[in-house]
């Protein structure tokens, strides 16, 4: 009977080539414990380069926890323990010899609430390149700051007020400033943890437009509570529930015909 029925989109099959090969970030059997609590359960996923992957799921499902494993942000929580393997370009993120500061330059992060430093717009962006010693001269640093602001779609709005405090900007501008700050250290991966949840719809649209532009150069992972946002900005979507990765696949497929009933119940508003 099934012989005359078309196969579901084969897009999901693309993710099942050689484990880890051809992907920017790969996780294998990743577990996270907060003390006794098993917060993330055996997550394995491959994240392609130069595209956007969205993590969706109800609060407490583990999506942010997993995101924070990728640049070892969980290291800052004393009771947190991570097992399994996460690689970027095949290099183990949890390798003892790896410099975590270097890692976080390669893997930039943008948070829910815009958090510019209480410094000038210029210094916010110049901060990373300075501490990493990226610029040999003031001219070179200027260049990095301008390019980063330009890439973050903010230059036009701030070019005449670079000495103003970063905190004087609007919420949406502050968030783009944080993206500029992340870009300034030439990351390969950008993690975004609900980057638009504190922004109005217009500022949100600007960030989404920016994400769409940035994906031609970076591997972007975005955690979002807005299913519509995930559907709009990502090429692939991963659904987390109760600490497990339930389903990962091409975004169009996930939002029209997900394979797992739990995914369907969540994205249609049947479970919280």
């Amino acid at each position: 009977m099934d012989a005359i029925v078309a196969n579901p989109s084969s897009a999901t099959a693309a993710a099942h080539v050689m484990p880890g090969s051809g992907f920017k970030v790969s996780a294998r059997d990743c577990n996270v414990y907060y003390g006794e609590k098993h917060a993330l359960k055996s997550v394995s996923v491959d994240i392609p380069d130069r595209s956007v992957m969205a993590f969706i799921g109800p609060s407490g499902c583990g999506k942010s926890t997993f995101l924070r494993c990728i640049n070892r942000m969980n290291d800052t929580i004393p009771i947190c323990r991570v097992t399994g393997k996460i690689t970027i370009d095949g290099q183990d993120v949890y390798d003892q010899s790896l410099d975590v500061v270097q890692l976080r330059a390669r893997v930039g992060m943008v948070f829910q609430k815009p958090n510019p430093f209480p410094k000038s717009i210029y210094d916010n962006v110049a901060y990373g390149p300075r501490i990493h010693g990226f610029a040999q001269s003031r001219a070179e640093l200027d260049q990095i700051v301008m390019t980063s602001l330009e890439k973050a779609g903010l230059l036009k709005e701030v070019k005449d007020r670079l000495t103003d405090s970063g905190t004087s900007l609007s919420g949406g501008q502050q968030q783009r400033l944080c993206i500029a700050r992340a870009i300034a250290v030439s990351p390969e991966v950008i993690l975004m943890d609900e980057p638009c949840s504190a922004l109005d719809p217009i500022a949100t649209a600007r960030i989404e437009e920016l994400i769409d532009e940035l994906r031609s150069n970076y591997s972007i992972i975005i955690v979002t509570h807005s299913m519509q946002q995930a559907a709009r900005v990502s090429q692939r979507t991963a659904f987390f529930h109760l600490g497990t990765l339930v389903e990962e696949g091409e975004t169009g497929h996930i939002f029209t015909n997900p394979n797992d009933k739990r995914t369907q119940d969540y994205i249609t508003g049947r479970i919280g």
């Binding site: 299913m227 939002f255 029209t256 015909n257 249609t268």
Partner: peptide, 9 residues
């Protein structure tokens, strides 16, 4: 409502 998945179908 912005229906999704089976609701969209």
């Amino acid at each position: 409502r912005q229906p999704m998945a089976n609701d969209l179908r």
